[in-house]
Amino acid sequence: MRYLNRLDSKIKQYEHGNFVVTSVDKFLNWARLSSMWQMTFGLACCAIEMMATSASHYDFDRFGIIPRPSPRHADMIIISGTVTLKMATRIKKLYDQMPEPKYIISMGSCSNCGGPYWEHGYHVLKGIDRIIPVDVYVPGCPPRPEALLEGVLKLQDKIRNQSTYKKNKA
């Protein structure tokens, strides 16, 4: 109930129990941003920093982010590292397997734009956004865990402001 209070909704005591009055959008967004299950999927160097972020020092779990090995369980995928052409088709497949709504964080220069491999990397995809839509880009090579956490918070902000109703109408 403590968390529901944050929804800025009207809570009124009734005789036969509690009611919460809120908008559908706010309720759905609150649920989505508070338990973003992340797909366990490391690509390259950034994956080590992603592991460090989920380990004891930085602790991803505080944001409700729990690694899930299957794309079917995942809400969010962090593309952590260099995407090669051979891997790109697999990532597209994994992305297609995830249920809606799904969110992408592109972590590190490599998946943002090719990074150090942009010029001579004949086997490196120059940016993951060429194959799947990206919600948040985290710069760095590799980004610090704090930077990744900032990216997660930005994604939460984005989810907080999205509207299911308006999207369907438009």
């Binding site: 590292g81 697999r90 491999y117 010029e119 001579h120």
Partner: peptide, 26 residues
């Protein structure tokens, strides 16, 4: 293998000796 082939040797051809060090890191 080959899902993370990042063309190290190709980069080393195009870089001077000190410039190779960051690619060795990776």
């Amino acid at each position: 293998i080959g899902y993370l082939h990042r063309c190290f040797e190709k980069h080393a051809e195009a870089m001077t000796y000190p410039q190779v060090v960051p690619y060795v890191d990776r």
